[in-house]
Nucleic acid binder design. Structure first.
Lengths: 355, 355
DNA sequence: CCCGTCGATGTAATCGATTCCATGCGTGAC
DNA sequence: GTCACGCATGGAATCGATTACATCGACGGG
């Protein structure tokens, strides 16, 4: 592979001049510039990013550590992050933690070793020493979706409180009184917050959230199945199961189907995170939709701001309830006129990919 | 950030000795080793991968360029690729081409600039000069899923021919005679092969595949919708629509639903690529399942073999028909006893993630 | 007792870029 | 005509590692 020396030789100039041409430094004669460019073309030369990074101490690369690539929510997040990063001149390296703190640490370490310019994390746990050290050591960092309290790092996330209130209003309006939740890991902020928001919303209607109606999941499908089976085995099973993410909702659907229980007649189902498939499940699933693309883009902007020495602010965007049929007949007491906005709401993914 | 020099100073040895300890070279005294390790611990030193790569001309990194991250098939592929790569001591950088040749080129160029050790590609098109040059120049490379004919690069893929024959047998057995396909781009091998296999299988039953029943899609949902609308507008609409990937099937489902047409009573639907959601759509969708995880792992093994100077073989694994209800009542003439293996078949993703 | 060998270590070259500093030359001001 | 200034350019240091080669001391064999 041709190096800058070869180009210099071919063009009959020094490597310094070649470098100046490539970084379009002003003081290069038109003649030299032309000869260098010709040599570059002739040799098919491409600068070695590794060498450049070593010298400049910049990789123009962001690390993104997400909790689970198989979760369509994170997949869409990753896509928007890459898109915005590319627009700003950065590449992205994705690390998939699979909801495992050890894997998360592996990726963070790997990314730091590669001297990425900044780190975008959706932490799987309460914060490993490694990540806290990195933050303290001054690595530009931004939390997205989930975060770790007590660390001075901007957070970009969606606030589901209002949407959860809307959901509970919807459920209550349909006559449901025994509501259960499949929670995420308590070590994650989203794991805790969604339960809290749910409990609070129930409280507004004088309803309780008994321990038996809080199932401990891990944001993956299998746990949704297990927890739902537990709910169905209860002497008094809940009338509604609210899954704190879309994969656990898939697991819940598996469990319900295996028992021959009908949705929504026998049990209602709702989920946090909306995905295109929810329109076509049997029945279509009522969900809380996050502005995923916006979150990804805002997170990148905040991180790049930090990298370039500007402030880099936290952002909180509202999530929205999307009513479908999985909790009962849709429009009797629904807080929003679903038919009108349904098409836009139900395919966040697709809409974005064709603009 | 501490460098090898700092460690050397702290330990009272030369940088050469530090390097020897870190790469566990045999001839280092126990004493020196201990002092170096102590210094490494004290300073929290981590070797700079950028510098190391420059010197050794190895990045221990594989590039993976996939056609669309939002497609669950590729997402699962990416996951298995990363898993196997990690097991073999490599990291993976993923580039998402979004089915756009220009984006694909962008990522290939970026990865080559970073001097990745090898490239895994699922080409979006017939092969840009850039990729062909890279292959010719000796960059270790392996095609996965899709490939480019006439290039001397191992190919790891699934063969759907048998499964497509099984599908057509199933459809024919259910009495369907007017079968249509939503094809992928003709520039991709999978785009062409799936149509060819379908046509061939139809031929075995004396059926034709008229041009009107071949819709040109691009592997993304929107095109599935558009093509399906075209089919429904035909004077004689098909009885079956076979989508060449899961996203176009989603689009087809959108279109069908928007028209109020019922599946499978009014029109049957089948798809290439099986995903967990197909179990829960309304109705559950009959699909052709690829051994995705195996493909990813085999591709990495082949690529690493190439990188390390060993041969690196092409691999072709069979795809399998999974019958569900989207084409008509399932078990009258089904080639396989679905209920028995349904659980294993229908959740390749989940099963793998918990072993 | 001397010499060759081997183990442990350090010095310095090297990878491919960027960039500081020095040099040489042309030009305009006085 | 001289001087100063600025532009174009090249030489060489530098980033942080790896590694070939040199050195030095100890030890064993003849």
């Amino acid at each position: 592979m041709a190096s800058i020396k070869d180009v210099a030789a071919e063009a009959g100039v020094s490597v310094a001049t070649v470098s100046r041409v490539l970084n379009d430094h002003p003081s290069v004669s038109a003649d030299a510039r032309a000869r260098v460019l010709a040599a570059v073309g002739a040799l098919g030369y491409r600068p070695n990013a590794v060498a450049r990074s070593l010298r400049t101490d910049q990789t123009h690369t962001l690390g993104l550590v997400i909790s689970d690539v198989l979760n369509p929510y994170f997949t869409e997040l990753a896509r928007s992050v890459e898109e915005e990063a590319r627009a700003l001149g950065y590449s992205v390296i994705i690390g998939n933690a699979d909801e495992r703190p050890d894997l998360q640490d592996h990726h963070v370490r790997n990314l730091l070793d590669r001297r990425i310019d900044g780190l975008l994390v959706s932490p799987t746990d309460g914060g490993s020493p490694l990540m806290l050290d990195a933050a303290r050591a001054g690595t530009p960092m931004v939390f997205v979706d989930r975060w770790i309290p007590g660390v001075d790092v901007p957070v970009v996330r969606a606030d589901g409180r209002t949407a959860v209130r809307d959901l509970v209003a919807h459920l209550h309006g349909l006559g449901h009184r025994r509501l259960a939740i499949i929670a995420g890991p308590a070590a994650t902020t989203t794991g805790r917050e969604r339960v809290e928001a749910f409990r609070e919303a129930l409280g507004a209607y004088g309803l309780e959230l008994p321990d038996a109606y809080i199932g401990q999941g891990d944001f993956q499908a299998e746990s949704g199945r297990r927890v739902t089976e537990g709910f169905l085995d209860l002497a008094e099973p809940p009338e509604v199961v609210f899954a704190a993410d879309n994969l656990m909702a898939l697991g819940a659907l598996d469990a319900v189907r295996a028992r021959g229980v009908r949705v929504p007649d026998d049990i209602a189902l709702a989920a946090f995170d909306d995905i295109p498939w929810f329109v076509h499940t049997d029945p279509p699933i009522t969900a809380i939709a996050q502005p995923t693309g916006e979150l990804g883009r805002a997170a990148v902007r905040a991180l790049v701001a930090r990298i370039e020495g500007r402030p880099g602010e936290s952002v909180t965007l509202p999530a929205r309830l999307v009513v479908r049929r999985s909790c009962g007949e849709p429009y009797p007491a629904s807080p929003e006129p679903d038919p009108a906005q349904a098409p836009a709401v139900q395919h966040p993914v697709k809409n974005r990919s064709h603009t």
